[in-house]
Amino acid sequence: MADEESQVDGKPEHPAPLRGPDEGVPANPEGKRSSVAADLGALATGLKTTLGEFFSPVVTTMYPEEKTPRAERYRGRHYLRRYENGLERCIGCELCAAACPVGCILVIAAENTDEKRVSPGERYAKTYEINMLRCIFCGYCEDACPVQAIVLGPEYELSDTSREKFIYTKEKLLEPLPPDVEARLKSATPHPPASPGTSPQVGK
């Protein structure tokens, strides 16, 4: 009523409210008067919908028994890799620790000697620890590593019972990679070896 009167009396001072013709919910859509039959019909539609859902298959993933597939390059827990002859890849350069945005990686390097050769390079990581409570799984360590020593595997169920257990030591990180990840790393090398001729970027 108030609206009609204001329009009859004169032109409204302000332009129409900032609302498009299709916005807002009018009391009676399309000017229809709500009827008991229409209301009951709406109730019936609701009941039909839920009954349809009731007879539809369940979509829940039964988690611990059944897991959704991970993306191929999912970034889960870390692994340190070895060469096929058993030498560790890590050369103790600490680039991963430098790249890490949260500083969760600790590398203490030591020199390789002829009697005790751990990695093919000059140095190796005497200590390699990752604090998994700090890690944000960004994968920058993997990108920074010049010898692809560190990779992020697919495991994401990393719960444990004490904080100390979340500091992954070198022994734990050197566990063998899951075979599918190993196969992927072999087939499509993320950082091609920098030998001229094989890599397109190193042309010239």
């Binding site: 839920t50 859902e53 009731f54 007879f55 539809s56 298959p57 369940v58 979509v59 829940t60 039964m62």
Partner: peptide, 10 residues
């Protein structure tokens, strides 16, 4: 269970 089925849960 029935409410779950209506919401497509088990």
């Amino acid at each position: 269970v029935a409410l779950g089925r209506i919401q497509r849960r088990p």
